[in-house]
Design a binder for these strands. Structure first.
Length: 211
DNA sequence: ATATAGATGTACT
DNA sequence: GTACATCTATATT
């Protein structure tokens, strides 16, 4: 498991969002190491993106980290009970971030008893944070360092296609609600919400599930 | 299978 | 007060 470097995380946001689908999230806990492959994410590109917390250049205590250098964690609380993990992207001053929406569990996940439970365990931004124990304590954490970091897989994934389409739950965002800024692995069973992609890129043409 | 309602805390008109 | 980058339990096709 090779940790990513700050340089790896310094890419244009759209490219980084697609690159994330090649990486894993690692969290070291007292109970052991937990690993999940990123299979779904969404980019938020303030200040012109009405769906972004940083829309209009709004800089608050909550959004401050988005205005800093890339590769740090933006963690926020949603609906009073769930946390969401984002990777800050773009150069300082560009308040952009990528929301990690779903992971495929790799290795040991004792709380998942059946294959079905395993597929759904990390399917959703709130669920994966709960399962990984991610909360506001990780706000601003550099994502190339333990105990929470991004890494390259030990062995390359089988060939996969990247699907993209509109983001989830941003209908209030006007025109921005339709921008295809959600990315996922086509046909992957751990993706949070099934939807028809607006675009597909990658070697596969048949719609066969891939892990 | 899909459709609700309800939980909860922080950020913001 | 209202909205929210959500999820689960329960009810209803």
């Amino acid at each position: 498991m090779i940790p990513v470097t700050p340089t790896d995380l310094d890419q244009p946001t759209e490219r980084l969002a697609m690159a994330l689908l090649d990486w894993v999230v690692v969290k070291d806990t007292p109970e052991g190491r937990r690993v999940g492959r990123i299979v779904e994410c969404e980019m938020y590109q303030g200040p012109h993106d009405r769906a972004a917390h940083s829309y209009g250049g709004r800089r608050t205590e909550r959004t401050a980290v988005m205005f800093g250098p890339p590769g740090y964690a933006y963690v926020y609380l949603i609906y009073g009970m769930y946390h969401c993990l984002n990777v800050v992207s773009g150069p300082p001053g560009a308040p952009e971030a990528i929301l990690i929406r779903a992971l495929e569990p790799l290795g040991d996940w004792p709380e998942a008893q059946t294959p079905r439970q395993r597929d759904r365990l990390l399917a959703g931004p709130g669920k994966l944070c709960r399962a990984l124990g991610i909360d506001r304590r990780y706000y601003g954490h550099p994502l190339w360092q333990p105990p929470l970091w991004l890494a390259r897989p030990d062995t390359p994934w089988p060939s996969y296609q990247i699907a993209r389409g509109p983001r989830i739950h941003v209908d209030y965002a006007g025109e921005a609600a339709e921008w295809p800024w959600r990315f996922w692995i086509g046909g992957h069973p751990a993706v949070s919400v099934k939807s028809v992609p607006a675009f597909l890129t990658g070697p596969q043409t048949e719609s066969t599930p891939r892990r």
